[in-house]
Computed example of a mutant assay.
Amino acid sequence: MKAAVLEKPNTLCYKEIPRPAANDEFMVVEVKACGICGSDVRYYKGENPWALHTLGKNLPNPPNIVLGHEWAGVVREAANPKYMEWIGRRVAVLAFKSCGICDDCRSGNYHLCRKTAHIGHGAGWGKMEYYPGGMAEFCQIWNTNVCELPDKVSFEEATILDPLSVAIHAISLSGIEGGDNVLVLGTGPVGLCIGQAVSAYGADKVICTDIIDYSLELAVELGIDDVVDAKKETVTEVLKRHGLEKVRIIFDTVGTKETQRMALSVLKESGTLVNLVMNHTKVHYQLLDIAGERRIISSANNRTEDFIMGIKLIENGIVNAKKMITQTFTLKDVQKGFDVMLAKDTDRVMKVVITP
């Protein structure tokens, strides 16, 4: 089969590799669409964002990774008799499998399992000739990790489920209550998913920030109440426009010293700042900055229930996944898709999708 293989940092090859086979643990899915995630770009550059988020450190990636964890398709093979009925079904996939026996797994925090195996990068597999991923004509997936895709949700729209699940998990950690005002720093895919999904939790005003004109335009089109063009105005000015001084819930999808300091300056008492970016940035603050029971927490990965809720939010039109997809390329042209994501001179890119 054809696949996009990251042979080493900055070297992505479209090539023929062995097609996976179903067995007692795995079924085989014909991939119909796979998103290029921001983390895929980081893997392409040689980083390991999963290790940074889950392990708190960067680790080298093995060679020959088939990238792609945001994917959906049709089940074509199953070997375990319990799952034969899935053949022919449209599915979205949960791209990770935890060990099930570590302290994190047994305490319900399986999304933080340090022994996780993950489709789309090398974590948890040991040594392999090619590490499985969704940027291929076919991909293996654990029998238990497929979710039936409603007819109303296209394969392309399903590529938004991974960032949407990450967004939902972050929202669930925030302590949001009905009527809360929300500030989202950064309007990439995760930020836009948060901006839309918080309405399901009873958010009142939702304000997003960015420096990219197209991202801000798209936020408005997706129903975000107001946006902050950080090149022209401050968050404080926009909050005043709505009669607000501070907000109780803030999500930082940017992760800089500036965004952290600004977020703390407008975080209301009993409020929560949720960080979705882990890097080596050093941020200095005073204990007084979190007085009044303010919280700073991080959010990592997602859980099965977040993924299921994401399907419902797209199916019911609460999250407009279709509008977030800005470019589509065939698998053969996967490098063009990464070039678009890597380009610094373009500002009309949100979600790039590969269709084998």
Rank of each mutant, 00 (worst) to 15 (best):
L192F: 06
W142A: 12
R42F: 05
N58L: 11
N80Y: 12
I194G: 08
H242K: 12
I171M: 03
S215D: 10
A200V: 10
K231V: 12
V74C: 08
L288Y: 05
G178C: 13
L164H: 06
L331G: 10
V283D: 03
V184N: 02
A219V: 06
W71G: 12
V353L: 09
I160Y: 08
D40A: 01
K45Q: 15
T187K: 00
L173S: 03
V353Y: 04
I87Q: 14
I211L: 08
G255R: 06
V146Q: 09
N275C: 11
A200D: 13
V274S: 03
T54D: 07
E157T: 09
I318C: 09
P49I: 10
K152T: 14
F138A: 07
P9R: 06
I212Y: 09
E148L: 12
V247C: 00
V41I: 09
A343H: 10
A3N: 13
D289I: 03
G88S: 13
G133Y: 01
M278P: 09
Q335L: 06
Y43T: 04
P62E: 03
C113S: 15
I168Y: 03
Y131V: 03
V28E: 12
G175T: 07
G68F: 04
P163A: 07
S154F: 08
G255K: 00
T281W: 03
W50S: 11
D204P: 08
T54L: 11
N316A: 09
A79S: 15
I311K: 04
H69S: 10
D103F: 11
V228I: 07
I296P: 09
T11Y: 06
P49H: 12
D306V: 06
R89K: 14
N145I: 01
Y110A: 10
K45W: 01
G255A: 02
P189N: 11
S270P: 00
V277M: 06
L264F: 04
V5C: 10
Q286G: 15
T259V: 08
E237P: 11
N10E: 14
Y214Q: 10
E258D: 15
A4T: 04
M1N: 13
M350A: 13
G337F: 05
E293F: 09
L67Q: 14
V227W: 01
A123T: 14
N145S: 12
M262I: 01
M84W: 00
L164Y: 10
C13H: 06
S265E: 12
P150R: 11
K351C: 02
Q196A: 09
T328R: 13
K2D: 14
F338H: 09
A51S: 15
W86R: 13
D162P: 02
W86I: 07
D210E: 01
V5G: 11
T272Q: 10
E47T: 02
C34P: 07
N145G: 03
H280W: 09
G35R: 12
C34F: 02
K205P: 00
E156K: 15
F155T: 04
P81C: 15
V235Q: 02
V227G: 08
F138W: 14
A136C: 02
Y285M: 15
T272N: 04
N61P: 05
K15Y: 02
T256G: 10
L276F: 11
G317D: 05
V266P: 12
P189K: 04
D210Y: 00
K8L: 06
N320E: 12
L239W: 05
H242Y: 15
C37A: 08
V93H: 02
D226Y: 01
